[in-house]
Amino acid sequence: MLTPELNCSFLGMNLTNPLVLASGILGTSPSLMERMALSGAAAITSKSCGPEARAGHPNPVTVAWDCGVLNAIGLTNPGARAEVPLLRETKQRLAALGVPLFASIFAPRLEDYGEVARIIAEAEPDLIEVNISCPNVASEFGTPFSASAESAAAVTRTVRKAVNLPISIKLAPNVPEISLIAQAVVEEGADAITAINTMPAMLIDATAAKPVLSNRTGGLSGPALKPIALRCVYEIAQAVSVPIIGTGGLSSGIDAAEMLMAGATLVGIGSVVINDGPSVFSRICTELATFMKDNGYAQLGDVRGKALT
């Protein structure tokens, strides 16, 4: 059998493989995003950007243990205006490599989402990913917009009106029926869905008798999140027909295949960077191609949605 094809199409973009650098992982500068693209990421998501500059939470902001990573960085970003030149520079560097740029945005209030999207659109990213689900700012921003179909739909409507670029809405896992939220955002014009964000969680240090993170709670990612992400994507894929960027705890080519089988079109890669560094992308691609070859899959389309039937 010939070497399996990993190239794929997503909202009219042609990607060399299905792996996307997930938001919040090293998407902070043109040089780092270019480095991730050179390392094999077929699309790059920048770190979420909001209306104003934010320093984020004090340390400790990240810990890792056997089953995953817990983080509460706190949406550190330079503010939308300052982000535009960085994204322009990034877009230019990535375009030379044939790698699309997905720009992640967030806002504390519903009415700010449109303005942030309009400003970020000046950098002409290939897609705007709308982060409505960061679990680490509830003490400042209130309940995330991802918590209900109504509020998720309202953000989608606001961003849809503000920009003509493709938009993907990033959903949270900690809701009773994620498929209803997916349907609501698609009805308001979402071109894609990114699922899932991290899961709210906590680690306590017994000798310190205190939560480990300064924010007390954080977002759980890494291997512990994978089964939750697979379930969410599986349910969303049955409810809507837009493409899904399946993200959450994937750390191998077989994990990527499982996410594609759950119905994802693209596969987000994030916390596993902790183990491998940027070289993780080429490893996962090689493992995915090997899996496909060993199991008689010639192209990604043959794998996609396989577990749904």
């Binding site: 780092l32 770190k47 984020g56 983080n71 994030g270």
Partner: peptide, 19 residues
Amino acid sequence: VMRCGVGLCGSCELPETTC
């Protein structure tokens, strides 16, 4: 400037000019 310390957050990147 060290925050995550494990290669996820990007805060300790050396300036490109230094590199």
